[in-house]
Structures are given as structure tokens and as C-alpha cells.
Nucleic acid binder design. Structure first.
Lengths: 252, 252
DNA sequence: TTCGATTTGTTCGTATGTATT
DNA sequence: TAATACATACGAACAAATCGA
């Protein structure tokens, strides 16, 4: 098999380093290397793709910036892992109003199979009525129930996912997606608004019926912008805030 | 004057490219080059700092990633400008629930001098009671009043800023900070929560007294993490969302 | 309009340093 | 210690975009 990306004398449309980047991403999406595993050394990749090592480095630089890969001097370059820390500091943005970020505890409230409603179908880019898995999760910080998550995922992506697996997962949900199903959540888009909480939410979080809450609709994506999860979170923000830094690491 | 950052044969503590980066940042903070102006060409900087052009490029790469500089092939490298687009797509995250981002129109409601209350003092890192300027701004999208901003800035940073200047500004507020006072807002941290709207907000936005609204507390920073503005926004999110992408450009 | 000078963008290669195994 | 892998730094050559003569 010829892995070379450049053909002598002929110039491609996009820069070489971007084609290398795409190629690595494609292998990643194909499950060529699993999370936490090292990808081949820069010199190896340079040979395989028949480009200079500088070009490989530039491609990897971009993937590291996107938090898809992680470099370790002297050890190698690894597929990013969604460990506790990453999930918490990257995808979990709720923090006490005047305090430090605490680890939330999670409690599975319900689990069922179902069919995608229009909103879920649109978010997950699957047909209406396609089989999905639904579950509800309650998060507490320092013993206080604060967040109710309603999560929907396509059944096709998570074969065999059941209530026991979810309940007994050792770490975060995204960590489970990764270790059990090989699905890496690498980005998410969220839409937030304020609303009064519904009865169900009020009951789950112990709130009065008209309490204003923060509702977050999140679509989580894997490689190639494939949506893998749709989640609606209801957050009691009476004593907590949703944190967002603009321009800290460029872009968002 | 000797601008060299490296001394022959001696290695510094931090990498050379980072020292170059810091040096450029320092010149930027000192107002050496104003927004929109080009910085010297890479070859010039390489000579000035007595490093290779590759090292200068790496330093500039980081500043470009942080959106502090902008490169244009064939023209040069420029200090980032807060034009309409940047302010809108970078710092303004409110969008119609089922639609595209629209340009908001702004209306100055009030302007006054005052003294920093404890929250403002803490956010702006100035003493309590230090002189500040306060103003309120109402933003509308497609003719509908949606957002009430209460803004506080230290008087010391904005000498001569008055109501007329604010009212007649041609573009965004951050654009005014930049063109009139040489202050560049390069990042911001925001804390969001849901609450019922206060009487004043209800009046300004034409809402019922108990409508749930999204409150955003933003601290805007210039170079060297110096806070320059404290802003509390009240957003009517009945038909609009606050948009946030996690992991799109790495980091946030 | 053409041409040349300037500036950043891309790609290559080499040498050396530092961390890990 | 030796081998391996990434990190830093240097520089060359050419491409592509821009701008002014």
C-alpha cells in the first residue's frame, strides 16, 4: 500500500501538512489507534507519508492544539484520553458562585430504549423514529443535587449499552463511551437559556415549581463532526455559575 | 540598544521562542505598535532579536493562536483589531433559538461617574471606592430589546470618556476602547446563571417581573491579564440562546 | 499593465538538547 | 549506558500574495 501523500512534481490543493493532519484524523476515526495508545513516532510517520519530519510535526501540532493528541517528550504522541480531569475541566463548567470547582457525583435515575423525536433526530443526524437509548442522570456537588441531565444516544453507536453498565461505570460517561465503545467526544456545542423549571425537574432537584433554572442543550461530537450524544441539562444556578472563558486558548 | 535575547553559548531558562513572544507582548502592552498597525517583518525581528526566522515565526504563531496578532501573506503581521466582526463573533454569543446570528443594535441608557463597589473593585482589581465610570446599554436584535448591559470601567484607564463619545461611537464598545484609549480586550471570563429579572431590567426590556432571565457577569482583560471592564448582562432568552462551543479551537 | 521588491506560507533538512525507557 | 522520541533552534529554497514603481 502506498501511503505517500505527495506526488513528485505535482502540487495538491491544500498544504501538505493539512493532508497529513487529515490522514491521521482519518486513521483515528477508523479506530486505527485507540485512546491512550501512542501513534507512531514522528520519524516513522515522516517515512510512511514520505514527507519531512517538520511537516509531520506541524500536522501533529494542530491535532495537539485541538486536544485530539497529546505529546510527551521522550515517550511519544498519544491519543487523548477522557480521564476524570479532562471531562471535568473541559466539558463540565458548573462551579460554586464563590468557590472552586468540585467533583460532582452522579446518580442514574432512569434508563430506557426509545425512538428519536424530531429534536433528537435533528441533533444526532439520524432519521425520526430511529432507535435511541435514553437515560437521566442526576449530578450533585457536595451532596447537593444541582443538575438533571436527559441524555439520548443512537443505539447503533452503543450496542449492548445497558442500565447496569451505566450504573457501574467507574468514571465519567464520556470515559465510558471511550473505553467501552471506542467513541471519543472531542468537542461539543452548547446552547444555554434561562427558564422556569418543569415539574419533573423540580421534583428531581427539590425545587419550587417556578424556580428559574439554566437549561443547556448540548450536542457532543466525535471525529469528523459526527454527533454522538444529545443532552439537555437543567441546572440549579441559585448558588452556582456556568463558567466560560472567551479567548483564553484562542477561538471559542 | 542591544535587543538580543540570546547570549552566545549560554542557555536561558525558558525556550528562546517564548522569550521572543514575551518581548513582543511587552512591546504590545507598552503601546509600541497600535491596533491594526503592522509589526516589523519576520526577517527584521529575527535580526533585531538575533535569532533565526524560524524562532520568530514560532513566537508569532503563538500570538496568532491567541488572536493577539493577525498574519496576512504578502502584507505583514498586524496587531489584531476589534472590528465589528471580531467583537460580534468572538464576544457576542447570543443567537436566535432557531436562527442565524444577527447584528445587535445598541442604545445608551445612562452614563455616570461613581465609585467602585466591592464586586466591581474585586473584578477590576482596584481599591473599593476608586473612581469608575458606569453606563447602561440596551441591545436589540431585529428591533427587539433583548439585553441590558451594566458596564463599569476604571476612570483611570479611560480618561475623558464621556456620554457623547459613547453615544456617538461608530462601532462596538471594544472597538472604541481600542481606537480611543489604546486598550485591547483580548479575552474575557464569564459566569452565567438564571434568575428572575429585577424591576429595573423588566422595565428596560419590557418583561413581566418574574420572567426568568440569563445573567452574565463578564470580566474583560487586556494584555498581561489586566482587567479593564466589568459587565453584568441580563438577557431575555425566551427566544434566544447563549451559544458556546467547547473544544472547537482547543481550550475553552 | 508589467515587473520587481517585499512579506508571509510551505517544505525541506540538519544539529543539538532533554526526557524516557 | 544506549537507544528512542519529542523539543528547540537554525537556515535554505521556493511558492503565493501584495504593493508600488
Amino acid at each position: 500500500m502506498d501511503n505517500r501523500l505527495a506526488t513528485a512534481g505535482v502540487v495538491g490543493l491544500s498544504p501538505l501538512y493539512r493532508r497529513v493532519e487529515d490522514r491521521i484524523l482519518k486513521d483515528l476515526a477508523a479506530g486505527q489507534w485507540r485512546s491512550g495508545e501512542p501513534i507512531p513516532a514522528e520519524t516513522k510517520l515522516a517515512k510512511r507519508f514520505d514527507v519531512s519530519i517538520g511537516t509531520v510535526r506541524k500536522a501533529i501540532d494542530e491535532l495537539v492544539a485541538r486536544q485530539i493528541l497529546v505529546r510527551h517528550q521522550g515517550r511519544g504522541t498519544f491519543v487523548a484520553v477522557h480521564d476524570e480531569d479532562r471531562a471535568l475541566f473541559y466539558f463540565f463548567r458548573v462551579v460554586a458562585r464563590d468557590g472552586i470547582k468540585k467533583y460532582p457525583t452522579s446518580e442514574l435515575l432512569s434508563f430506557s430504549e426509545g425512538r428519536a423525536d424530531p429534536a433528537q433526530a435533528a441533533a444526532l443526524r439520524i432519521p425520526r423514529g430511529a432507535p435511541i437509548l435514553r437515560f437521566r442522570n442526576r449530578l450533585a456537588i457536595e451532596g447537593r443535587a444541582l443538575i438533571l441531565d436527559r441524555i439520548a444516544v443512537p443505539q447503533s453507536l452503543f450496542p449492548g449499552l445497558d442500565e447496569a453498565t451505566l450504573r457501574e461505570r467507574p468514571s465519567t460517561i464520556y470515559s465510558l463511551y471511550q473505553s467501552r465503545f471506542g467513541i471519543n467526544v472531542i468537542r461539543a456545542s452548547e446552547r444555554l437559556h434561562a427558564r422556569t423549571c418543569a415539574r419533573e425537574t423540580a421534583r428531581a432537584l427539590g425545587l419550587a415549581a417556578d424556580t428559574p433554572i439554566l437549561e443547556i442543550r448540548r450536542i457532543a461530537y466525535s471525529y469528523n463532526d459526527a454527533p454522538v450524544e444529545y443532552r439537555i441539562s437543567q441546572v440549579d444556578t441559585r448558588d452556582h455559575d456556568y463558567l466560560n472563558d472567551l479567548g483564553r486558548n484562542a477561538g471559542t
